[in-house]
Design a binder for these strands. Structure first.
Length: 156
DNA sequence: CGCGTTTGACCAGCGC
DNA sequence: GCGCTGGTCAAACGCG
């Protein structure tokens, strides 16, 4: 298992993590060496139609973090703001439409920024991974905002 | 044979 | 109105 440490945990959905805001907070946290960008206040009032957005910055050699879900890469894009290409993954599990964006930190190529867009409407296909991933935040996957609830209530 | 991965092209949104 | 950037989808290829 590769080594990776959770350096920052960004809870998005309230307007933070914008281009400038993100850069400022990212650099700020890097300069101070502490995770100061943690915001949970936006979890319960995320904008309608946006769902929940979570960004993790972790130190890892590999850019893809296997969190137990099955991710299918569906695109790659090189953005001028980042010297490294950005990777787009989508949850290949049935009935799940969660997207994951992965890019290397612009200030530290040793760090990887994983941005989750959406919430899994199903349990981890490999839940036993949780037992091996004490570093992750399972609560982040468990919380499901009412605006992101899947319309699967007609299958009764 | 099936699934996943990779690259390119196309489309949409925003800024100038 | 045009140009640019970001994002997504599709087709083909390789590997399991």
């Amino acid at each position: 298992m590769p080594e990776f440490e959770l350096s920052d945990y960004l809870m998005l959905g309230d307007g933070i993590f914008d281009d400038d805001t993100y850069s400022s907070q990212s650099m700020a946290s890097l300069e101070k060496g502490s995770a100061a960008a943690t915001e949970f206040s936006g979890v319960g009032k995320n904008k309608p139609g946006v769902g929940v957005r979570v960004a993790f910055r972790m130190k890892s050699e590999m850019e893809v973090i296997d969190d137990g879900y099955k991710w299918r890469k569906y695109g790659k894009k090189s953005i001028k703001n980042c010297p490294n290409p950005r990777n787009y993954y989508k949850c290949s599990s049935g009935g799940c439409d969660v997207k994951k964006r992965i890019e290397r930190d612009i200030n530290d190529e040793s760090y990887v920024i994983t941005t989750y867009d959406g919430v899994h409407n199903h349990e981890t296909p490999s839940m036993l991974y949780y037992n091996q991933m004490p570093l992750m935040a399972p609560n982040a996957w468990t919380l499901q905002p009412p605006s992101s609830s899947p319309p699967s209530s007609s299958s009764t």
